[in-house]
Design a binder for these strands. Structure first.
Length: 291
DNA sequence: AAGAATCACAACCGCGTCATA
DNA sequence: GTATGACGCGGTTGTGATTCT
């Protein structure tokens, strides 16, 4: 059927946005709301394609965007979530209120990836830039996004993202009790394709014995959302002690390699995140998800 | 001081998914 | 069932700013 170009119209502006364009777009959206981007750009009097308007709004003009340095907490969260999710920037951004997927992607590509690369090349003479990055051996993360302020040694394995929807198939293992509890409590949505579910870290779709993780929901918490939720889970554990995690290293590695394992047990992202928190599973942070 | 190298990030591009006619 | 357009996502590029030599 052939696909039309993304922004086929001739005579549209490209490149950097002017202050006037920003103003037009922001005021139009304020008055009429988002959506129908191609129509919106025309109605707002902008000579921009809809995609460009959407991007500008989402990444720059939106009022709730948090600009400025990415904190250490946020960075740690990004690293952890990247280990968990790979290059699914929108999902990662969903856990960092006020941060955009583009910002996180840029941050990863410019700061964290280089840091990881610097790690990988230990033993070989560092390049000029990696030498700078590794000049602090303490392992502390300096305040970030100040120019060239990338000094921490954090080992990150890059993942090669494949194009996919926001659904992530995850193996079903552990903790079955928790899974059934969620089913009972209605926290699992069997047909959900809606990313605005509330109540839990992830919305999970029962699907042929496996589960399809739909997305993190955005609940508007702080930058250490994951920790917050883990804390909440801890409390829950005390009240309802679960069986010990039915995991071992081999099992974990196995399902990361073969993410479509059959399984009778349930695992959700709460569990996985909790698992990643533990020292025993510190190796998980270096696992390369084969997505 | 000047040119080169590097960094940071906004913006673009192409593709996949979904809704709908 | 198919075609089409809108939207969203992730990869990549362009460019101004900053730092180094």
């Amino acid at each position: 059927m052939g696909r039309s170009p993304s922004c086929p119209k001739e005579g549209l502006n490209k490149g950097a946005w002017t202050a006037l364009e920003d103003k037009l777009l922001a005021s139009y959206i304020k008055a009429h709301g988002e959506g129908k981007w191609s129509d919106l750009s025309r109605r707002a009097g902008l000579k921009r394609c809809g995609k460009s308007c959407r991007l500008r709004w989402l990444n720059y003009l939106r009022p709730d965007i948090k600009r400025g340095n990415i904190s250490r907490d946020e960075e740690e969260l990004i690293i952890r979530l990247h280990n968990l999710l790979g290059n699914r920037w929108s999902l990662i951004a969903g856990r960092l209120p006020g941060r955009t997927d583009n910002e996180i992607k840029n941050y990863w590509n410019t700061v964290l990836r280089k840091r990881a690369k610097g790690q990988a090349s230990i033993g070989t003479p560092p390049s000029k830039s990696t030498h700078k990055m590794l000049s602090t051996e303490s392992g502390d993360c300096e305040p970030l996004r100040s120019p060239r302020a990338t000094k921490a040694k954090i080992k990150v394995i890059l993942t090669k993202a494949t194009r996919s929807s926001s659904k992530v198939r995850i193996p079903t293992q552990l903790p079955a009790a928790q899974h059934t509890d969620k089913l009972r409590d209605g926290q699992l949505n069997s047909t959900n394709n809606n990313q605005e579910m509330s109540g839990d870290i992830a919305t999970v779709e029962a699907h042929n014995g496996t589960q399809v993780l739909d997305s993190f929901n955005s609940d508007g918490g702080g930058s250490d959302l994951l920790n917050e939720q883990l804390k909440e889970r801890d409390v829950e554990f005390e009240e309802n002690p679960m069986q010990p995690l039915a995991f071992d290293e081999a099992m974990f590695k196995n399902w990361t390699v073969n993410p479509c394992l059959n399984g009778n047990d349930a695992m959700d992202f709460d569990s996985l995140a909790l698992l990643l928190e533990t020292d025993e599973f510190s190796f998980c942070r270096n696992i390369n998800f084969q997505t």
